[in-house]
Simulated assay, not measured.
Amino acid sequence: MRVKCVICDEVGQLPDDAPLAKTLRNRPIHTYMCDQCNERIADKTIARIATGNFVFRRSSHSIENNF
């Protein structure tokens, strides 16, 4: 299955029987991000958390209390 990263527009290839490929086929709202963009966003998020100014926005559901 051909996929395109939503951030950098890099075209990639996923095996047709991969779980992510099935998710993208069955739920069009889900988007694909390449490994480089995913890693870059994760690193920047960790850096923002380390500054102490990052606030997690969570819902008020009772299940969130255990998170």
Score class of each variant (00 low, 15 high):
Arg27His: 12
Phe67Glu: 04
Ser62Lys: 05
Asn66Ile: 11
Ile29Phe: 13
Thr51Leu: 06
Glu39Cys: 14
Cys8Leu: 09
Cys34Tyr: 15
Asn53Asp: 09
Ile29Gln: 15
His61Pro: 01
Ala18Glu: 14
Pro15His: 15
Ala21Tyr: 01
Asn65Thr: 03
Ile63Lys: 15
Ser59Asn: 03
Asn66Ala: 13
Ile49Thr: 02
Thr51Val: 04
Glu10Ile: 13
Ile46Cys: 07
Ala42Val: 12
Ile41Asp: 15
Asp9Leu: 12
Met1Val: 06
Asp43Gln: 08
Phe56Trp: 10
Ile49His: 02
Ala18Lys: 02
Ile7Ser: 05
His61Glu: 13
Pro19Ser: 01
Leu20Tyr: 03
Ile46Met: 09
Ile29Glu: 13
Arg57Glu: 01
Cys37Lys: 05
Gly12Lys: 11
Lys22Gly: 03
Gln13Arg: 15
Phe54Arg: 05
His30Pro: 00
Ser59Ala: 10
Ser60Ala: 04
Asp17Asn: 11
Ile41Gly: 13
Ile63Tyr: 13
Ile46Tyr: 09
Asp9Val: 09
Asp43Thr: 05
Val11Gly: 12
Arg25Val: 02
Pro15Ile: 08
Phe67Asp: 01
Ser62Pro: 13
Cys37Glu: 04
Gln13Glu: 13
Leu24Trp: 12
Val3Ser: 04
Lys22His: 02
Arg58His: 04
Thr31Arg: 10
Glu64Gln: 09
His61Ala: 10
Ile63Asp: 14
Lys44Asn: 05
Ser60Tyr: 00
Glu10Gln: 15
Asn53Cys: 07
Thr31Asp: 04
Arg25Trp: 00
Met33Pro: 02
Phe56Glu: 06
Cys34Phe: 14
Asp17Val: 10
Arg40Gly: 04
Glu64Lys: 11
Asp35Asn: 11
Lys22Tyr: 01
Val11Ser: 13
Arg27Lys: 14
Thr51Met: 06
Pro15Lys: 15
Val6Lys: 01
Ala18Phe: 02
Lys22Ala: 02
Pro19Tyr: 00
Asn26Asp: 11
Cys34Ile: 15
Thr51Asn: 10
Arg27Gln: 15
Val55Asp: 06
Lys4Ser: 08
Lys4Leu: 10
Lys4Pro: 09
Pro15Asp: 13
Asp17His: 15
His30Asn: 06
Val55Gly: 02
Arg27Trp: 11
Asn53Phe: 07
Ala47Leu: 05
Asn26Gln: 11
Leu24Ala: 01
Met1Tyr: 08
Phe54Glu: 02
Arg58Ser: 03
Asp35Gly: 08
Glu64Pro: 02
Thr31Asn: 04
Thr23Gly: 01
Ser59Gln: 04
Thr45His: 11
Tyr32Trp: 07
Leu20Thr: 01
Leu24His: 03
His61Tyr: 04
Arg58Leu: 02
Lys44Glu: 06
Ala18Cys: 04
Lys22Asp: 07
Thr51Pro: 07
Ala50Met: 05
Phe56Tyr: 08
Pro28Cys: 03
Pro19Ala: 00
Thr23Asp: 03
Asn65Val: 05
